[in-house]
Design a protein around this nucleic acid. Structure first.
Lengths: 338, 338
DNA sequence: AGGCTCCGTCGAAGCGCTTCGACGATGGCT
DNA sequence: AGCCATCGTCGAAGCGCTTCGACGGAGCCT
């Protein structure tokens, strides 16, 4: 492996000049620059990352802390990860992948040993123990999610409260007055993953504002979970004409159940789902849905991190506006139901 | 951030002694060691990764090159990734995540700049362009998959040929003689991802050996793809009593289709699936399946990489034996069909 | 008792890069 | 004509660690 010294000799300049050609931090004449670049190309020189990190205290690596349990939401997590890696590369950074289950120790390890310049975390819980640890690090961090006390830490996410409101307004606009929420599984609420709470709060608020009759229920995974969730919803409020579904896993069994029980979508019952686009269009009925913009969120997280690294100001809480896409699962309510 | 010098002063020893305590490369007396460790703990010392890499030319990082397209097989990819990260951590390594679409350039970048000690790649194609590039690197690499010319590069994967044979033997053992293969999507064959070919070859071979009547067909994604695949299979061989399904996406729509057309599983038609365990048991019928042991494969890939780094000998091609788990989708063929 | 061999520790030399201060050479002022 | 900036380049220091050779002391042998 050639070093910067080899390049310098080949180009007949000093190593520092090569460095300045590479970094552009000082003006270098066009001829010299050309000569240096030729030498770099010819020798196939790549600066040694460790040496660089040591001398400059910059690694050009960011950490991504992902929940690598394999249960739920895998595609969404993957979308986040893809977006983060792609965006990071566009800023000439690489991504070190950590698992959530290393907890606080993992963060501290990579931060203290100066392996990364910044951290991006996903799947934050309401009172996430990692937050205080993050505050102590010299590297900045960006959260995908919105834990309770996030002062001083940048957060990026979909505005789940607004998403709930958007869903309900859409249904209300189509004349629906009795609406059920099929929520995430109880496990999600238990973990206090923040999007669930925020969605529920927005739902209840909008329901009141719009004067709707609504009922909400978490939904266990699997066909049985869906059956009992629907039973509960029906029991607590009869004449449901629409459902908001904030639970990707439940979608397919729910549609199966509705079909089996003779409730047609959207003729008898309308549905708005909160899920990634590709999930919405892979169902037997193309679902009117509010997208979970994993790509945008991931990209924005990286952009925010980069801004932070440049010492620029950032908005510390960025909640992306939800956007509802109409497909085939919502219909103006038939007058008989009004 | 304290440095090794700070620790040395605090413990009243030289920096090299601290280093030897850390690495264990030379004997250090118990008392000295204790004093040094106390100092390390007290100061919260973490060695600087870059400095370490520079001095020792070891990074303790491995690259994982994953296909981050979000279409197919996401859960399996995630399982591989999880296993790799977890295993790497158990060897005190971290994982740098690269996307496949950076191609050769990405590999060369991280290798030449000495960011990683070894590379693990997944989703290899038959004549993968990255193979020759890998051969030129000074770092060793391990492939998850089995491209055509892999001489000198370690490969790890499920033995898909054996998996096909196992599936057919199982069905033959239950009296089935007319069997269809629902293959991966044509896109997978087109990409020449190697597992598809290997499975197909094993299938045809075993079919001949066992004297079976079989027919095979790729299967486009979605309900329509499944419908036309089944139509083709039925047209080319009537009296099918069993299916081997090597296409996770197709499973659900296939089961829907069979139900809709009045073919009961397993009463009228038996099914063996090749898919991860959790997919097999999340279907309306619990499927008899051959697991894709993503966890084992990922772990083995890391172990192999570590062996290579230690300069130990490894088996250059490790194909894991398939194991079939009986569940509810296979049945002894009824005599009327014999 | 003298010579060896270990053992435990130290000092110093790098690893390959960035960055700061310095310096000669230009060129634009007054 | 003389002075001061500015430009382009160089040299050297230093980032924090590992590792090699060296060295005093202890224990063993003969």
């Amino acid at each position: 492996m050639p070093t910067i010294n080899d390049v310098a000799k080949a180009a007949g300049v000093s190593p520092s000049t090569v460095s300045y050609v590479l970094s552009g931090r000082r003006p270098i004449s066009a001829e010299t620059r050309a000569r240096v670049q030729a030498a770099i190309a010819e020798l196939g020189f790549h600066p040694h990352a460790g040496a660089r990190a040591l001398a400059s205290s910059k690694t050009n690596v960011i950490a991504l802390v992902a929940p690598l349990r394999v249960d739920v939401n895998v595609p969404v997590i993957m979308q986040f990860a893809t977006a983060v890696v792609t965006a990071a590369r566009s800023y000439n950074h690489d991504v070190l992948l950590l698992t959530k289950d290393e907890g606080t120790a993992g963060l501290e390890r990579v931060a203290h040993s100066t392996m990364v310049d910044a951290l991006i975390l996903m799947d934050l819980e309401r009172d996430d123990l990692r937050i205080p640890a993050l505050r102590k690090l010299k590297q900045p961090s960006v959260l995908i999610g919105l834990p309770a006390d996030h002062t001083g830490i940048a957060c990026v996410d979909l505005d789940f409260g607004a998403a709930a409101r958007t869903a309900l307004s859409h249904l209300a606009g189509h004349g629906h007055r009795r609406i059920g929420l099929v929520g995430p599984s109880p496990a999600v609420y238990r973990r206090q993953t923040t999007y669930a709470d925020r969605f529920l709060a927005g739902f209840l608020e909008a329901s009141a504002d719009l004067g709707l009759r609504t009922v909400t229920h978490p939904c266990e995974p699997g066909a049985e979970g869906v059956r009992s969730c629907m039973a509960d919803l029906d029991a607590e409020l009869d004449g449901l004409t629409a459902l908001v579904v904030h639970n990707e896993e439940a979608l397919r069994p729910l549609l199966d159940l509705l079909r089996a029980t003779g409730r047609r979508v959207p003729e008898d019952i309308s549905i708005v789902a909160i899920c990634p686009r590709d999930v919405a269009i892979s169902m037997p009925v193309n679902l009117t849905s509010i997208d979970i913009p994993a790509h945008d969120v991931g990209t924005l997280a990286v952009e925010t991190a980069m801004r932070l690294l440049e010492g620029r100001r950032v908005e510390y809480t960025r909640l992306l506006e939800p956007s509802l896409v109409e497909r085939d699962s919502c219909r103006e309510i038939s007058t008989s139901h009004r």
